[in-house]
Structure formats: C-alpha cells, structure tokens
Amino acid sequence: MVLEMIFAKYNYIIYITLMTIGFYGMIGKRNLIKKLIGMSIFQYSIFLFYVSAADVSGGTAPILLKEPAVYVNPLPHVLILTAIVVAVSTLAVGLSLVIRIYREYGTLDEDKILELSK
C-alpha cells in the first residue's frame, strides 16, 4: 500500500529528498560554498516538482497538430524557465558575495568569520 503510493508519486519523493538535502546544506554546513551548493539543490528540487507535476504521461508538446492529442501544459515549464533565471542570478550574487567575504576574511568557514568579525 505504502510502497504503491511511493512508486506512484516517486517524483514527489525525489523532490522532497532533494529539498531536504539542500536545506541541510544551507543550514547545517559551515562552509559558505557548500551552503551555496545546498541552496542550488534546494531551488532546483522545487523546479523539478513543477516540471514533473505538469507532466502528462504520453502527452506531447503543445504544437498545433492535425488531430487532437494529449499534450503537456507548457505553462509550468515556462514559469520554471523564469525561476531558473532567478536561481542562476541568485547563485551569481551569492558567489560574488563569497569572493568578497574571502577577500575580507581570508576564509570561508562561517565560524571563523564570526570570530573575526567580532
């Protein structure tokens, strides 16, 4: 029963697993770069959710066809394109911040930075 549900909604399981990993990376890791990696995983897990939720099995791309066919709603994909752009920009901002922090403190370990900035 439970197994069936897991298999039927495996995409959800995957996205939640990824999200947890990402969340742990952001909160649990002390290295700033690892935090950023966590952040990316976290964001992308959500994109996967969007894209997979919009999928219709056997559907095609919504291109004008002669006869009616099952097609996949393109809107989530479009939305996620926007979100990906946002995620990439966030990563860019994050990385440039990390560079500044490294120049300032000479380390990327959060604990050490906290000590240095006292």
Partner: peptide, 30 residues
C-alpha cells in the same frame, strides 16, 4: 553588500534566508 566590512556576510546570510523564503513561496504557489 555595498556597506562596510561586515556587510558581505550580513548580505550572505540574508540571501540564504531570502532564498529559503522565496523557494517556499514558489512551492506554495506551485
């Protein structure tokens, strides 16, 4: 992050929190 010496770290932490927040919102909207 354009502020003084400690601003980059403040901004970084804000970014982490902000991204979590935005991702939650995105997920909720989803």
């Amino acid at each position: 992050a354009l502020g003084g010496r400690q601003s980059a770290m403040a901004s970084f932490n804000y970014m982490i929190m902000g991204t979590i927040s935005a991702s939650f919102i995105l997920l909720g909207i989803g």
